[in-house]
């Protein structure tokens, strides 16, 4: 049923390519994507001492989470709601791509862009005087895993998002929960982080990034939380997702 063959792969890539083209043609999105990382890096690097013992890792963790929430979570919710409203989703569902591939192809450019932005802003932070990250592979994992979690959450959020404009409102709650959870988490040293802190959706992304940058602490609980939230949101989205505006 969910056959993965050459056509599914090339079709998904073609869809991703055309979505990237659309992103590029939307000047505002393109400009935001290019300007956001340096601006955020600049802003946060000025406050690198205000996060207690978290140091640079805390700055980067918060920065990556904020970026993912903007550039993946909010952007994906908006994009999917818009495509659904335009009936593009309904039309694409008549193509030969499986449903997951339609959504995957549509969201892949956002994930790719987020990875590039994260790498850029990490480089900027270093340029502003931070040391190099201790475990860069974990940093990449935080960005990629976080981006996937944001995609799953976005697909779920589209269920209560009737239009692209509404996405500004419907993405608010998770946006603040995630940021609040992350600030709570990085306000204590990594070895004092409680399971409850990590369980707030999104905070594990910031914590994993902090561990990656600073080098101290056990990354497994944070990784596990990212996986759990991705799976939960993904499974719910699968059940509740709507392909067209009319029920």
């Amino acid at each position: 049923m969910t056959g993965l063959d050459a056509m599914t792969v090339s079709g998904t890539l073609a869809l991703a390519r055309s979505e990237l083209r659309l992103l590029w043609r939307n000047r505002l999105v393109a400009a935001t994507a290019l300007l956001l990382p340096p601006l955020m890096a600049l802003g946060l690097s000025r406050s690198s001492d205000s996060f207690g013992d978290g140091g640079w890792g805390a700055v980067v963790g918060l920065q990556i989470l904020t970026m993912l929430m903007f550039a993946v979570y909010a952007a994906a919710t908006t994009a999917v709601a818009a495509r659904r409203g335009e009936l593009v989703l309904k039309r694409l569902r008549t193509s030969e791509l499986p449903e997951w591939a339609v959504l995957g192809g549509m969201l892949a450019p956002l994930v790719g862009l987020a990875v590039v932005q994260a790498l850029l802003s990490a480089a900027m932070v270093v340029a502003f005087g931070a040391p190099m990250p201790q475990r860069p592979e974990l940093l990449l994992l935080a960005v990629l895993g976080g981006a996937l979690m944001c995609c799953a959450a976005a697909l779920l959020t589209t269920r209560i998002t009737a239009s692209a404009e509404q996405a500004q409102v419907t993405t608010m709650p998770l946006f603040f929960i995630a940021l609040a959870g992350a600030i709570w988490t990085i306000s204590v040293p990594s070895d004092e982080v409680t399971p409850l802190m990590l369980a707030v959706p999104g905070s594990a992304i910031a914590e994993l990034a902090r561990i990656a940058w600073n080098g101290g602490g056990d990354p497994l609980p944070a990784i596990a939380m990212i996986v759990v939230w991705t799976a939960v949101a993904g499974e719910l989205a699968k059940r509740l997702f709507r392909w067209e505006p009319r029920a």
Binding site: A14, L15, R21, L22, R25, R83, E86
Partner: peptide, 19 residues
């Protein structure tokens, strides 16, 4: 039904050819 307005006619047809 809908197609993305920013794609050209040919880009749209070509996308669908690969789908």
């Amino acid at each position: 039904s809908g197609f993305s307005g920013e794609l050209t006619t040919w880009e749209t047809a070509d996308l669908w050819r690969s789908l």
